[in-house]
Amino acid sequence: MIVDLVLEGHLEEPVAQKIVTYCGHEIGTSFGKKGFGYVKKSAHKYHSITKAGKAVFVLTDFMDTKCACIVEACEQYLTNHVGHPNDTFLLRFTVAELESWLMADRNGISNYLGIQSNRVPAQPDNEADPKQTLVNLARRSRNNEIKRAIIPDAKHGGSVGPNYRPIMQKYVEEVWDIDAAQQNSPSLARCINRLKVLD
């Protein structure tokens, strides 16, 4: 089935595409990529696409929702607006954020960053600030290119380094192993199970 994507940011794109392909579906158009505020406000509008026979996969961070639980977030993002959504509309939250899923392939990420695998959190879904955790892991890297790309320069005031997105995109496309990652991230495993039964 063709799956259109509604995404929080640009790094979500290769992740969502890889997951969709892994689950045996065809990648459709990527919408959004304008931050969590846009997804919160507008994701429900894309529900109309399901009526044209395509599936929609919304992917955004749970951390930014400021909701106590997924149920509350689903209400705010979706059911308050469209009532009972079609089965082909999938609103999925990365817990706590996208980087949890990326770190969940512990071997992959440790090799890519050039660090010891036991430094990578065993339960990345439980990290309070996964992006910060990932940046801190990169500080231990023996690879200068990785360090320059991922670690922010204190003078610039950013949360990640200047080449964070492309270097992580390369990781997603070339290294990230979904089988391994879903062993350590329950939220990813649930997302994949849901996508697999889509038809």
């Binding site: 640009h10 794109e13 290769p14 158009t29 990527s30 919408f31 959004g32 507008s42 509008k45 894309y46 529900h47 109309s48 696409i49 009526k51 997105r165 492309p166 995109q169």
Partner: peptide, 21 residues
Amino acid sequence: ESGLSVAEYLLPKTNPHNATR
């Protein structure tokens, strides 16, 4: 039906594939 604008709905359909690369 959705109220999505041309920018939100049609423009992404013209995006170059793999531009992020």
